[in-house]
Simulated scan of single mutants.
Amino acid sequence: MPSSNGPTLREAAHEQIVFCRDEQTGLRAIIAIHDTTLGPGLGGTRFYPYPHESLALTDALRLSEGMTYKAAAAGLPLGGAKAVIIGDPATQRTEGLLEAYGRFVESLGGRYYTAADVGTTSEDLDVIGRTSTHVVGRTTAAGGSGDSGYATALGVFSAMQAAAAATWGGNGIADKVVGVEGVGKVGRHLVDFLLAVGARVVVSDPRPAALTDLGESASRVQRSESVLTEQVDVYAPCALGASLTATAVDQLSARVVCGAANNQLADGTVAQLLKDKSILWVPDYMANAGGLIQVAGGSRRSGARTCWPRCVVSSTRSAR
């Protein structure tokens, strides 16, 4: 569940927040543009059944701010933005709703470029792309870079290797126990990377069919109700954010935290708690930037053409 702890509208340093509603399709969405100093805001669209609109707003505000840091740290000429669609994608995802959403994205005139996130796919982006030109990460068949889960997982794995080497030296992550929380489109690739170098993997995921995502790797991992309470060397949050609460840190046995989830800290006090326990935390916006890099510059892995329009990068404008 996304955290309710976050900036209020009064406290937020965002340039623009757009509330989107389409009565015909039932669309309810929020687009948050945090900062366009370095370029147009780019960030995924999360499709999630938020129980309250206030939680959706908080998620959009926090996620978009994180995208500003992520793009800047990666050296990309991009700003930070994010969007959320309020609803259950399993029952409310329709082409009409996605097309309506695309029209809202298009209405921003290039200040916001959307991509995939939790609850959305490259195929969804193809549909959104019918009504907006400001879409990246579409399927390779549509000329995009395809799903960014692999690139995100590769970045997390590389960051984890570096953190493990700094903590233990020697072989880094090999022979260590890694708890992967969430084995969706990023977590499943991370599991494969970890197994390939000899790590022992424990996974948790509330979905009954979660291990199906792991394919042949399913037989080589241990499943747990919660990796937070397992004896692990590394905790890899790869599901929704805010899993690192004061209680969670108190329970945590890991010496390294490195994962793909955005906004891993429930609030600003948790960083100090991790430091007090000598736990090395790799900030999420550093570890999980691989997906952003892919959709921003095209996918070398798939051989797709570059999907980021140079004309947009050269004509960026700041609201400040």
Results as ranks from 00 to 15, higher is better:
Pro2Gly: 04
Ser3Tyr: 10
Leu9Phe: 14
Leu9Cys: 09
Glu11Tyr: 02
His14Thr: 12
Ile17Asn: 02
Ile17Thr: 09
Ile17Phe: 10
Ile30Cys: 09
Gly39Arg: 00
Leu42Tyr: 15
Gly43Gln: 01
Ala60Trp: 01
Met67Cys: 14
Lys70Asn: 07
Leu76Met: 14
Val84Ser: 09
Pro89Trp: 06
Glu95Ser: 12
Glu99Gly: 08
Tyr101Met: 04
Gly102Tyr: 06
Ser107Arg: 03
Tyr113Leu: 15
Tyr113Trp: 15
Ala116Asn: 04
Thr120Gln: 09
Thr121Phe: 08
Thr121Met: 02
Leu125Cys: 08
Ser132Tyr: 10
Thr133Glu: 05
Thr133Ile: 06
Gly137Pro: 13
Gly137Thr: 07
Thr139Cys: 08
Ala141Phe: 02
Ala141Cys: 04
Ala142Arg: 01
Ala162Gln: 11
Ala166Met: 01
Thr167Met: 07
Ile173Ser: 12
Ile173Gln: 03
Ile173Pro: 15
Val177Thr: 15
Glu181Ile: 08
His189Pro: 14
His189Cys: 10
Ala199Met: 02
Val201Gln: 07
Arg207Pro: 02
Ala210Ile: 14
Leu211Arg: 06
Thr212Met: 08
Glu216Phe: 07
Arg220Val: 06
Gln231His: 13
Tyr235Arg: 00
Ala236Pro: 08
Cys238Lys: 00
Ala239Glu: 01
Leu244Cys: 10
Leu244Gln: 07
Asp250Pro: 05
Val256Tyr: 05
Val256Pro: 13
Ala260Ile: 09
Ala261Ser: 15
Ala266Thr: 05
Thr269Lys: 01
Val270Thr: 06
Gln272Met: 11
Met286Cys: 11
Ala287Glu: 02
Ser299Asp: 12
Ser302Ile: 03
Ser314Trp: 05
Ser318Val: 12
Ala319Tyr: 10
